[in-house]
């Protein structure tokens, strides 16, 4: 007889020896807070949205716009901002739509896929912010430097080099932060999803 079938016989007999929780104990459990992965991902994602929006609001209050006005590129700056906000709103809408679709009564594979999709939306959001920030930063700098007299005798290539370096450092820090934050959170989920997917090829 197969090993597993021997175990099956024992498995049926064990019912009598399983622990049993009383009604009051179960009622008490209902009041407890869930520590589920989805909850964690949800809250951290909200923090991410808030962080980037906060950064945006903060920088617009810092009066950086004055220099753009002086360089005559205010309109371009406004356009960059509007595009940014439209895209962010889009991301938030997609995030909530995906989140709504997570149902524990789905089959295991579908459930995992939906959680990973939700996660991916936020990941895209963060990368969009980084890339968009970097691009608009460079474009605006280019116009400011070429349009303003004060910057005429500055070596433009050294300036661009330094800016590029700062940007790379910035991206590296964010990437590292993500590895730490989500590494511990989604490692198990990702591994299990991969296993299910590999086995269903």
């Amino acid at each position: 007889m197969e090993e597993l079938d021997i175990l099956k016989q024992d498995w049926k007999k064990q019912e009598a020896s399983l622990p049993q929780f009383k009604t009051e104990e179960i009622c008490a459990m209902l009041k407890k807070k869930s520590s589920s992965l989805v909850k964690w991902i949800f809250f951290i994602s909200l923090l991410e949205f808030a962080f980037w929006i906060g950064l945006e609001v903060f920088s617009s209050f810092q009066g950086y716009n004055d220099i753009f006005e002086k360089a005559g590129v205010e309109l371009l700056y406004q356009l960059i901002l509007i595009i940014n906000y439209v895209v962010i709103i889009g991301f938030i809408a997609i995030f909530f739509y995906n989140y709504q679709k997570i149902k524990i009564t789905d089959d295991a594979k579908r459930l995992m896929k939906k959680i990973l999709t939700t996660r991916k939306t936020v990941k895209c959001y963060v990368w969009f912010n980084i890339v968009y920030f970097a691009l608009s930063f460079m474009v605006m700098n280019y116009f400011v430097i070429t349009n303003l007299q004060e910057f005429q005798n500055l070596n433009i290539w050294i300036f661009i080099g330094i800016m590029f370096g700062i940007m790379l450092l910035f991206i590296a820090i964010i990437w590292l932060f993500y590895q730490l934050l989500y590494g511990f959170l989604t490692r198990k989920l990702y591994k299990n999803y991969k296993q299910l997917e590999d086995l269903d090829l």
Binding site: S36, L37, T105, L185
Partner: peptide, 25 residues
């Protein structure tokens, strides 16, 4: 969202197993 037409135990298998392999940390 549990509908009475399904068996509670069948429904429970799914939710409980999903919790163990997906949500539980």
């Amino acid at each position: 969202k549990f509908r009475g037409d399904a068996k509670f135990s069948t429904w429970m298998y799914r939710v409980a197993l999903n919790t163990a392999i997906t949500l539980y940390r």
